[in-house]
Design a protein around this nucleic acid. Sequence first.
DNA 1: GGTTGTTGTGGTAACGCTGTCATCACGGTA
DNA 2: TACCGTGATGACAGCGTTACCACAACAACC
Lengths: 323, 323
Amino acid sequence: MSRSAPSSRSSGSVTLSDVAKLAGVSPITVSRVLNRPELVTPDTMEIVRDAIARTGYVPNMLAGGLASKRSRLVAALFPTIASSMFAETMESLTDRLGEAGYQVLLGLSGYPAAREDDLLEAILSRRPDGILLTGIIHSPSTRQKLLAAKIPVVEIWDYTPTPIDMLVGFSHERVGEAVGDYLFGKGYRRFAMIGGDDDRAMQRRNGFLSSLARHGIEDVPTIAIPAPGTLRTGRQEMARLLDGGRKPDAVFCNSDALAQGVIAEAQSRGMSIPGDVAVMGFGDLDFAAYTFPALTTVRIDRRGIGRIAAEAMLARMEGRNGL
Amino acid sequence: MSRSAPSSRSSGSVTLSDVAKLAGVSPITVSRVLNRPELVTPDTMEIVRDAIARTGYVPNMLAGGLASKRSRLVAALFPTIASSMFAETMESLTDRLGEAGYQVLLGLSGYPAAREDDLLEAILSRRPDGILLTGIIHSPSTRQKLLAAKIPVVEIWDYTPTPIDMLVGFSHERVGEAVGDYLFGKGYRRFAMIGGDDDRAMQRRNGFLSSLARHGIEDVPTIAIPAPGTLRTGRQEMARLLDGGRKPDAVFCNSDALAQGVIAEAQSRGMSIPGDVAVMGFGDLDFAAYTFPALTTVRIDRRGIGRIAAEAMLARMEGRNGL
DNA sequence: GGTTGTTGTGGTAACGCTGTCATCACGGTA
DNA sequence: TACCGTGATGACAGCGTTACCACAACAACC
């Protein structure tokens, strides 16, 4: 029963050649059955398929990627996925790319993106066919590595006129302005803001404040807390605000989790929402409208961003024109 | 300036040999500087490090993995990461494995795990050094593929006396029983349950019902909705329950999102929580205690599961004994 | 001074696959 | 009959790295 002794380095698992031998064809034909079936006659295909099934062959994409220079891997860097903001974007990205035969490697860069550079180095060594980054602020070394890698890059969740390559996002400053205009238009006059301290949160703050300044409102307490904001910190900061003698009639929170905390604190003090104080959230809970009281929030198409980013990247990877 | 023409297949990017040539050493020495620095003299190391920096060399783990049979990749399969339950487990897993030099490939199998088998096939072709699966229910074909792959497998978020390999989780049936006992002990007698229809949710339901049955309570309306449950569906189902003439004094929800929906519906009808109706959640919001009114819930150490799973897998992958 | 480690380095041959080009069989055309 | 084009298959080499073993230099021992 013993076969010719395999090399000492062989893994012992079934290879393309084993399948080829069993099917009575050359290895390259087996490869074509798997990757370019249109080049093979139906008869050959059936024989090979049968041999694959009988051997339990599992392709080795490390070898395939090395030979073809296509890893069919896409890397996605997010600060965190514990917030449903990024988690849903990641999900729709993974779904869409999965349909096209790509898999997604998750990199968590943290807040602030301290590890982004090291992480990128590790990720590039896997030779991904594309990279997705959250945000537009990257270190010079990160930018340089990305350019040197010569692969499609999609930046998401922010806006800049000068992306590295492709961009799917929106302007956080404009969101802040829109919220300021909206709340002012509703008749509110005593504002406060509670938000994270990351780049995008600060941009929303800037937009919010400049909108209010245009309407003649200058004295707006703003609280910056370390990202990511949670219900707990929202509640704490609202307590501090109220204990400090501030009586805002509208609070803009930089995430819906913070907003829920603010509401909880206000309610526990017997304040009515939005009668005594209006609370505005930002984008991370799709069920804001179903809470009681309903939470006004800025709706972001989180899955849409992932889907569009995936399409843009696929277009580029498959030689079409991209975004 | 022109160098000797590279082969038409070469990618043109910097390789280990290029670095070796520049440093005046053999390729294998460069490899050792990167992977086994303890085998190289400080002098050689410095020369090589310098050459690496000057060339901008990025290792190719496809080639390295092929040669060494170690991909330094771990795959993790979750039904979804849009719930903070699995997202946090995924985060702590990624963090811990990242420290040890491994990266994590995310696979989303969906509810129910329809795609698990195909996904696994695609994932195994990347030759991961380990696999993490959510839950203990897998198709025979999945089990067989996992065993054939001969790599460490960790199943999480559930309990069975017969795991495929290693297991980090807890019994959902026992959770259900504990909730039943707890609520009965608090004096509640008219129960209802709203939960997802996935395996684990059903186990919690069974435990809950059998506990109540032991206490002589039989007529418990239970509503199963497609996973994952959301605040919206929780609110809808609570409305149906109340409109149907049921007046439960305690509702066990199979997720905290559902629980929040139930609370919202009750409050919008002027009911007090927990005066008119007590609401019990399950494990996905770590800030349940900070909502108003505070939500009673079953606390699960989501990050702990990821961390322990990572440790167990590392132990096995690095030749230690595992769990 | 010969033998025995020990330490650092290198040569060679894989790892399992695919790009490239060659070959072969076949039918249609001149 | 000779020629050509087309479609299916195969031979060969190479992708960039690491395992394995060999070897040289040097120190330590009796």
